[in-house]
Design a protein around this nucleic acid. Structure first.
Lengths: 208, 208
DNA sequence: GTCTATAGATCGATAGAC
DNA sequence: GTCTATCGATCTATAGAC
């Protein structure tokens, strides 16, 4: 979805029904996927008729792809790493780790749908990977390069190390989330422990 | 002792049509998921009529769940870790790593389907996780305990460490596979490098 | 047991009134 | 633009002949 402040030169204010359709489709698709959601259902939730939907969107696939594309295109990394201090790798990685894990939980439903429909909508899977995991990896790689320049870490391949760090953060909680399994009683404590354990292993493993 | 099991008569040979149905359903479900495969399609591929399928399986959901349940229940870990030497952690972990990555590639399609249908078939997701990732983690935890007993590694939480090791092995290749993205031209070399890099980081990070 | 034929329901998409 | 009404296709599941 896009923010309301974003200007669209070629288009005037979008009608309330149009936005209602978008919102209804987004919520339904994200909770149940492409195949299990019918256009009748979207129309009913949006409070419009089915014909109104087809006056704004060519077909069901375009409606789905439009919603997912906009959602995947949103930037993942909230905290920029380019202006982070290179002499406090532990603090920066801890903060990045907590931010990343929060992001996984927040975007969990979207990722499950993207994976489920990756065969039918390969373009969506591509956009998701580039703007999500790959963008995160690139950002961390740049930061690790700077840390290595200070001599505080010795990483032979910062690209690979960035991948490893995010892999450690995902742990098995990511897979559990994709599978819809409850991760025990004290999830937040487990997540914090996962972050600190990942940073510990990473820093010691790449110490000079 | 059940003498008359309708579903699995292990003593009596199951009819060829029954097995043809199972094989056709398994292949189709694994390649396109639950919703996109019709009973007509399964019947056509199996060379039987639709009514014959319904004479063996209650409905489409039971047919799907039966196939996926059987596939998920298959043991993952091929090489038992209980009889592995505790004084050669690097060699054992390298071998386990290659085996695990091969397994991910082999079961890639099944995992994508399990994730995609996790909401509709939570039981399948549960069985998959227990027999797959969780069983692997338990096996590795036991081995790491033995290695720590020899003093060659110092791991505060072997359960967490086992999770971390498998997470390092998955790297981002696992996610790419779920998304159906091609992982470049030289996949095998990248996989080998991922395994060695994971073992390197793990051993140095948990060195005494 | 296995088939053909079809019921019954739902879906995506459209025609036509207003 | 938006609605109601419906078409045609497709799906799951079943009835009935053999």
């Amino acid at each position: 979805m896009e923010t309301e402040t974003k200007e669209r030169p070629t288009e005037v204010a979008r009608s309330p029904k149009f936005e209602a359709i978008e919102r209804a489709a987004y919520e339904l698709f994200l909770s149940r996927g492409f195949g299990s959601v019918s256009m009748d259902e979207i129309a009913k939730r949006a409070g419009v008729s089915k014909a109104t939907i087809y006056s704004h969107f060519a077909d069901k696939a375009e409606l789905f792809a439009g919603m997912m594309r906009a959602d995947c295109a949103m930037s993942w990394v909230k905290s920029e790493l380019s202006d982070r201090p290179a002499d406090d790798a532990r603090g920066v990685l801890l903060e990045l780790g907590r931010s990343y894990i929060g992001l996984l939980a927040e975007k969990g439903a979207m990722q499950r749908i993207v994976i489920a429909e990756a065969m039918r909508f390969p373009e969506i899977a591509q956009i998701f990977f580039e703007n999500g995991p790959n963008a995160s990896r690139l950002a961390l790689t740049g930061y690790l390069d700077r840390v290595c320049a200070t001599g505080k870490l010795a990483i032979p391949d910062t690209n690979r190390a960035a991948n490893q760090f995010f892999a450690l953060l995902r742990d098995d909680i990511y897979l559990r989330g994709l599978l819809g399994l409850d991760s025990g009683d004290d999830l937040q404590a487990a997540l914090d422990k996962t972050v600190t354990a990942a940073v510990d292993l990473f820093l010691k493993g790449y110490a000079p």
